[in-house]
Design a protein around this nucleic acid. Structure first.
Lengths: 176, 176
DNA sequence: GGTGCCATGTAACGAGTTACATGATTGG
DNA sequence: CCAATCATGTAACTCGTTACATGGCACC
């Protein structure tokens, strides 16, 4: 059910097309909820038939038409109700940890290199998040409420990536 | 594909039945890979027809028969090959973050209470992990390789939960 | 006598992935 | 001329979830 609500949450702030959603999901909500464009179009169609969003066809010069979606009042109420329900703790599903768990089956160098590679990838994500923090969220206390909440999701990402790097370091130390 | 390999990884150390898998997944691999018993039985059937695992029917007194699965040499090779392939960075999918992202739509108290609740849940998981650490992994450096890798997955859990609690604290501070 | 554990499964559905398909415009 | 971007979708498949089904034994 959460994809539908992630879409509602994003659309309620930025009405846009399915194409835009598929891309801009990458920047904000996309940090904690991924979806391919096929999934998004399917979900948008469903949300529209249910009346939670409505579409306006925009004709563009030199470009294909697009459908601009926005959240209806019904959709807004659904979103608010959903937010009020308690959320489950997210389960972790991570290939890398399955591989680490069975890491004794391969040459030590294989796991060490893979951990170094992931350390680097998480470090890069961390830098990207920190740059956003520097640019837009210098004084979190002074932000309007709506941006405080955006900041909190970014802060979660910063925490997560920094902690992941720290774990990689400890893991690599133990394996040497 | 990873459920199959998570099962292989677990079976290669502890040959057991589908029923046991469904439960014991909870203790070790289950911390980073969840599956219902239906999924497990389906996957086991598939793995058996592919010849990656084999079953031996065990007749038990006063209990239903069970099928004891173990990994074949083919399965072992498949697992080793899979571990050698680079793993994707896991995508985060978390309902709570979607709710936080749109948190300005509800009363401040709603989000604060939900964050407090999650803080508590993660704290409990952290304690549980730390107890396992105390009991079985006092001196990680001295462990045999196979247990070092198990420890690393546990350490990942400890990191994750501790960091989550820290984020909840910062979030709650900002919202007050 | 009811609840819960052991043990295995089927069926239906919803969510997510991969591949295929179209067609115009922009920029190198 | 080729690749990339904009923009929308269908089809087929796998993975994950929920509900239903069976049946004996142990324990209170």
């Amino acid at each position: 059910m959460a994809l539908a609500h992630a879409i509602l949450a994003f659309l309620s702030e930025h009405p846009c097309s399915g194409y835009d959603l598929a891309k801009q999901f990458g920047g904000t909500v996309g940090n904690f909820w991924k979806a391919t464009h096929q999934q998004i179009y399917r979900e948008l169609a469903k949300l529209e038939t249910e009346g939670w969003i409505s579409a306006e066809v925009i004709q563009q010069a030199n470009r294909p038409d697009k459908k601009l979606y926005s959240v209806t009042e019904v959709g807004r109420q659904q979103l608010i109700q959903w937010i009020g329900e308690p959320a489950e703790v997210a389960a972790i599903k991570e290939d890398l940890l399955v591989k680490v768990y069975a890491g004794h089956l391969v040459e030590p160098q294989v796991m060490i290199q893979e951990l170094q590679r992931h350390r680097q990838l998480h470090l890069e994500k961390l830098s990207a998040y920190q740059e956003i923090e520097q640019q837009y969220f210098q004084n979190p206390q002074d932000l309007p409420a709506i941006h405080k909440f955006s900041y909190l999701t970014l802060l979660r990402g910063i925490h997560y990536e920094a902690d992941y790097v720290a774990w990689c370091d400890e893991a690599l130390e133990l394996l040497r």
